[in-house]
Design a protein around this nucleic acid. Structure first.
Lengths: 348, 348
DNA sequence: CCTACCGATTTGCACGTTCAAATTCGCACC
DNA sequence: GGTGCGAATTTGAACGTGCAAATCGGTAGG
């Protein structure tokens, strides 16, 4: 067991200088082919690996990306971030980057963590999730010149300076629209929406997709409004909302439901399947969580792996040698797909 | 905007030497109280924070803990690790440690990552999850003198040298036993077990708890064996298993089911609630996943936050100044609790 | 009065790397 | 035959920190 190999020890063994070994790794084009070969062989032999703290001291780059681990909400859509996180970690690793986690109770705390992580660990970039209206985090990072990307589009109107940051998002409206069209193809004409109260960015986006699709099919505005409810995100609230809507006179009661989350959809599903309720009522959820898979709930599935890969790419674009891509294509809006299951198709 | 403050710049401002500032932070007892006060004030003023890469170069410690992010299995119990990870990150952060993620396709790959992470980033320790029979990872880490803790007890017989590593686990047998007792209190006498095929460590542990409790209540061994099935972990398999068991002649068909996972329990639940099946059949799952909460499934809940906190403590014990605690209390076996819901109690 | 010692502080150095500048060598050019 | 030039390589320095040893006053012991 010798001491850990260093540039120096490799250099001696290969009869070259420190710097040449460094060049073999970081700028191979500067090294004569035969020297390159010889040094590479020695590196292989002794199993040399560069020490990243030492490298970091010179380059001021850690090749580490920070991500705040959100508190487990009610757990039902914690799985959403889970898949995103896995894909992000895996792909970052392949590209030579690592993912470091941190927690914070709120946005303020998150910003405070940025400061600490930048000063002490010199993280290269951050990935932000759960962007929302009036988000102070993006502003802080931009002001401090820190590379970052958000999973979730910016919900505020463009700032005065006209510059916008990199983001990846999933088009929620497109998802609910697809859900409506799917239900219409099955013959449904009275399609309600059970979502969250207005004011939530992602929630309003999903509502918008449903509303437009429904109006486009000829439903009157006042009728659509009657089929549109906003309640807190829980199974019980979903059930209550569905019960109320179904209570309408025969010709006005919806025959299908599009929901803003799987939690709500589960409630709706329970309400439509119990008692003397009509089991042919169709239900579509959102996020395609494990719950949906388990109970056979049709749901809008977000392409989380692709979202992570694209987010990472947007980050690496900023971290590359050129200061910034002049192109304006640092926005990615992905379309979700519909996972069709028993809850929306008539039993055989 | 000045340059980033360093020990040197703080020292000059406080009219002391570099080392004194260092001592203020790392060995305050060596510094005269009034000097201490003055230096601390300057540190506060300029917002100095030690640069961890530089510190790491001297101390050979990164204050970073590594954890492999498991591939999202079928997602249903991905939430289990999620809560553990969150608690681990949060508490590590408070204690001055960070959590770094990595991925690997299998145990071999994980070991290979250990090597790289230790050489390049000098991670201080690792947290291992999903330990299993014949796990090569613990051996490798022990051989290389790397501090680690496993979430999951070692399933192999104690090694010849008599030393064992630190671990935290949840007593699965105790969980299934509690489930059986809960059902017995409700009057059930014919309680079946739907688990995984024998050979899985955690699965066998959960089966053991059920079996002992059932035998203790006077059920004959051959009868217990008839109520014990092992199938793959999916909703469909759970449903099939339940249907088969319920098909037994009246006096032999179980009236209650204890399951090794919520997936299986969901299947059992579906089977017992459909057609002409008896809705008074009770079902208990395992892991208390969001699905269970959502559908009202009674389930065995693991104390994941406590598990994370205890695991972290066991790690820090090893990382502290003293080489190793001589005590043998680096094993923690936590008891799960039962989250009682509608699936096990008769409707009012 | 010299020495020994203690508490408080300072200085020298090394950790492993990369940047910038210096050096060496071969070759073409005038 | 000197000069200039480019390719390949080497040397010096610095990143910010903490360990080890050195320094400095002051005080007690012989």
């Amino acid at each position: 067991m010798d001491a850990r190999p260093t540039l120096q020890s490799v250099a001696e063994r290969a009869a070259v200088s420190r710097q040449t070994v460094s060049n073999v790794l970081n700028a191979p084009h500067l090294v004569r082919p035969e020297t390159l070969e010889r040094v590479r062989q020695v590196i292989e032999e002794v199993g040399y690996r560069p020490h990243s703290a030492a490298r970091q001291m010179r380059t001021r780059r850690s090749r580490v990306i920070g991500l705040r681990l959100q508190p487990t909400v009610d757990g039902i859509n914690g799985a959403v971030l889970d898949q995103f996180l896995h894909a992000l970690t895996e792909h970052a690793q392949v590209r030579g980057y690592r993912v470091m986690l941190f927690t914070a109770p709120d946005d303020e705390g998150e910003i405070s963590q940025y400061g600490e992580l930048l000063d002490t660990l010199e993280l290269d970039a951050f990935v932000l999730t759960s962007t929302h209206h009036g988000d102070p985090r993006t502003r802080w990072l931009a002001d401090h010149g820190v590379p970052f990307v958000t999973f979730g589009r910016p919900w505020d109107p463009p700032s005065s300076d006209g510059r916008s940051h990199a983001w990846v998002d999933v088009d929620g409206a497109s998802g609910t629209r697809a859900a409506v069209e799917h239900l219409q193809e099955l013959g449904h004409r009275r399609i309600a929406f059970v979502g969250w109260p207005e004011g939530s960015d992602t929630g309003d986006d999903r509502r918008r997709g449903w509303r437009r699709a429904v109006l486009a099919s000829g439903v009157a505005a006042h009728q659509a409004a009657a089929w549109d409810v906003g309640v807190p995100d829980s199974v019980a609230d979903g059930a209550d909302a569905a019960a109320t809507l179904l209570d309408a006179p025969d010709g006005a009661a919806p025959t299908a439901f599009v929901c803003a989350s799987d939690s709500l959809a589960l409630g709706v599903l329970a309400a439509t399947r119990r008692d003397a309720a009509d089991p042919s009522v169709a239900v579509v959820g959102f996020d395609d969580t494990p719950v949906a898979r388990a109970v056979g709930l049709t749901s809008v599935a977000q392409p989380l792996t692709e979202a992570a890969v694209r987010a990472l790419q947007l980050l690496l674009d900023q971290l590359g040698p050129s200061p910034r891509p002049a192109t304006d294509d640092h926005h990615v809006l992905l379309s979700p797909s519909l996972a069709v299951r028993a809850s929306s198709v008539p039993a055989p």
